[in-house]
Design a protein around this nucleic acid. Structure first.
Lengths: 126, 126, 126, 126
DNA sequence: GTGGTCTAGACCACG
DNA sequence: GTGGTCTAGACCACC
């Protein structure tokens, strides 16, 4: 998995890391049950402080995306059924993206085909 | 337009305001050329400082969503064609949303029908 | 003379007007002794308040670029010798432009040929 | 780097600061990758509020002249190739300066030698 | 330690 | 009456 951070972005580094790992899992680069790099390893690869990676793993654990075991390290959790709060959050974010796309002159067909292309293209193995 | 802020959210107030205004425009509650509330008015309605609203308007102006005129205040800009940077930003955000949806157990059909429902439902007048 | 204002620019309208008139004179579209439009005429053409145009003419008068006569209206003043204050102002502005050009990756040759092209091209009649 | 502000100037303080920093970089007093003073430090040195300096840094960041890193503060960005919008802005400003110089009785030779002297003299190390 | 955000209140330029 | 700027001082997130 390749990590590319955007220093100078307003998004905190630990959130950028979290997003890249989530995307990596979605893409199938990291599969269910597979181990994530150790905190120290990832910190070295990404060139950041171990505290930062630690925060990322704690966040992913809280969100239910990974399991942290003292012996086996961090592993990808199995897929779970969504809850109502997630659904609302997703809808709000899609609404914002849709509004922006409209204001940038993007039509419905184009927007939806992009959504399909990206969702379908993430994980060809599925 | 109703404004609801989540104090205590990690998202800065001026970004929350920006998002709500963008969504409001996308929904058709604010149309092209229409005036936004004055800085002071919105500040009072939302219960925040004028500088916070000012920051929001500056951001929207930089993004090309509104025009700020010394005489008439802020108005909704006409739709513009997107550029490459926006496209990349949109793709990255959709990829992240798709990955999260997958990991929450959401299938492609469900995800896409949600996208369509939200995009189509924004602005019934179109 | 064509006037094009950029509403939403941080530059005040009366300064934009002043700049366009100065550029117009430099280009030779307005010659020494020639009359400028009346305040009301220019205000109508540019779609601004007469007070704004008035302010522009007062500024140009203060700078010595035009003469305002109650009977003949505003006319372009003859060329004058520069003073030390103008020289310093010009140098400061050129230094800023040079610094920006350098940081945008522009070389000396390119910068100077642009200067020459613009200065020479302004007023072919000279 | 020495900062000298003109209180009472119509140019906002945060723009004056921006201009002086840009000129400083152009002069070679601040080199690529070098750190700028912290917001608080510069605020104290210049005798202005931290928010004013903050605004300056935000502006420089938006313009691509500096990078703001949560860890190391602000650093001078590497030189980038200019885009079309910058070119147009530069041309408009040079046209205005040329017109003013003409009306002040400055000849082409004198104007161009001044341009050369200033551009060449900025950064002797190059 | 850094920058980022926010407030309350003030003053000013612009039109 | 509009937005733009600035201050003084505070608190917070991030690393």
């Amino acid at each position: 998995m390749l990590i590319s951070l955007d220093i100078g972005s307003s998004i905190p580094i630990y959130v950028q890391l979290r997003n890249q790992i989530v995307t990596g899992i979605g893409r199938g680069e990291l599969k269910e049950g597979e181990r994530l790099p150790t905190v120290r390893q990832l910190a070295q690869d990404a060139g950041v402080n171990t505290m930062t990676v630690n925060k990322t793993y704690q966040l992913l654990k809280t969100e239910g995306f990974i399991t942290v075991d003292r012996r086996r390290g961090a592993t990808v959790s199995p897929v779970r059924q969504w809850d109502e709060r997630y659904r609302e959050k997703l809808e709000a974010e899609l609404e914002l993206l849709s509004a922006e796309a409209r204001m940038k002159g993007m039509g419905q067909g184009e927007f939806l085909s992009l959504c399909e292309q990206i969702f379908a293209g993430m994980c060809p193995a599925d």
